[in-house]
């Protein structure tokens, strides 16, 4: 009786998927348009105020030039090659530090999370390091590694490492215990258990750490470049301010914002791809 029920419900329930796809296709364009308009409304308003306020004399245009002037300066920097050169310097440092942090933090976190006694032993230490502001350590890095690329990549690596490491550890430690019981009852070898249960179960939480680190990598680098550097977006912003090239300064700031948003979107896209099985989309 209930088999029939099961089979019948299979027939009844299966169609909606097809149905949903059809509906999605039909209303795809207007929906996308609405999303784009909805999500960019606040930004458009901000940019409009930026353009209008200095022109109307609401703010001093020496300190906040209108957006159009900033964009002209941005174009000038791009045309002269200064923007590309500085952005490249920043991105190389940022990505090197970030990449190293992912390369070190994820395997190390998996290891520490897996060996419970090790995690308990190290967690006070990790807590201490995480709560030591990376920029407070910048003088130490400069002292030891000099003012070249090494110290800048090192500070990014340091700042990115903690969110990745701590999230990975907690990801491994919070794997659903019933899944571990299942694996044990199937007599899975530790390697198989790791590969087939722990690793895939950890991906969402690990990625939260990676995205945090992505934001941190740009934040810390720009600050580091303001202290002692001869290239980079942080340097560009700081140097422009010294030379009273205010539109150029804002152009630099704008570039950093755009890079930050783009980087986050990229990481979000990778995360979505890896966690497509999850019911809800990851939140930005």
């Amino acid at each position: 009786m209930s088999t029939e029920l099961g089979v019948r419900s299979a027939v009844v329930v299966a169609p909606p998927v097809v149905d949903r796809k059809v509906r999605q296709r039909r209303s795809w364009l207007p929906a996308l348009l609405r999303t784009v308009v909805g999500r960019s409304a606040a930004i458009v308003v901000l940019l409009a105020v930026w353009e209008a306020a200095p022109r109307l004399g609401l703010v001093d245009r020496t300190f906040l030039p209108p957006l159009s002037e900033v964009l002209r300066a941005w174009w000038g920097l791009l045309d002269g090659g200064r923007l590309g050169e500085n952005a490249r310097a920043s991105l190389v440092r940022s990505f090197s530090g970030f990449g190293l942090a992912v390369g070190i933090g994820v395997p190390l976190g998996l290891l520490i999370g897996w060996y419970r006694p090790l995690a308990e032993l190290l967690s006070p230490l990790l807590e201490l390091f995480r709560n030591t502001a990376a920029l407070a350590l910048l003088p130490v890095f400069v002292l030891v590694l000099g003012i070249g690329e090494t110290s800048k990549i090192a500070i990014v690596l340091y700042a990115c490492l903690w969110p990745i490491l701590l999230n990975t550890i907690s990801a491994v430690r919070t794997v659903d215990p019933t899944l571990l019981r299942l694996a044990r009852s199937l007599d899975l070898s530790p390697l198989r258990l790791f590969q087939k249960v722990i690793l895939p179960a950890s991906v969402p939480v690990v990625f939260t750490g990676i995205r945090l680190a992505g934001a941190v990598s740009i934040l810390v680098l720009v600050a580091a470049e303001m202290v002692g550097a001869k290239a980079g977006l942080g340097y560009l912003i700081n140097a422009s301010q010294y030379n009273f090239a205010i539109p150029q300064m804002y152009a630099g700031i704008l570039t950093i914002s755009v890079i930050g948003v783009a980087f986050n979107q990229l990481l979000l896209a990778i995360e979505r791809r890896l966690t497509a099985w999850r019911p809800g989309p990851p939140t930005s």
Binding site: T178, R181, V197, T275
Partner: peptide, 9 residues
């Protein structure tokens, strides 16, 4: 198991 223990991915 009571909680199914299915791998969500």
């Amino acid at each position: 198991f009571q909680q199914y223990a299915l791998l969500p991915w």
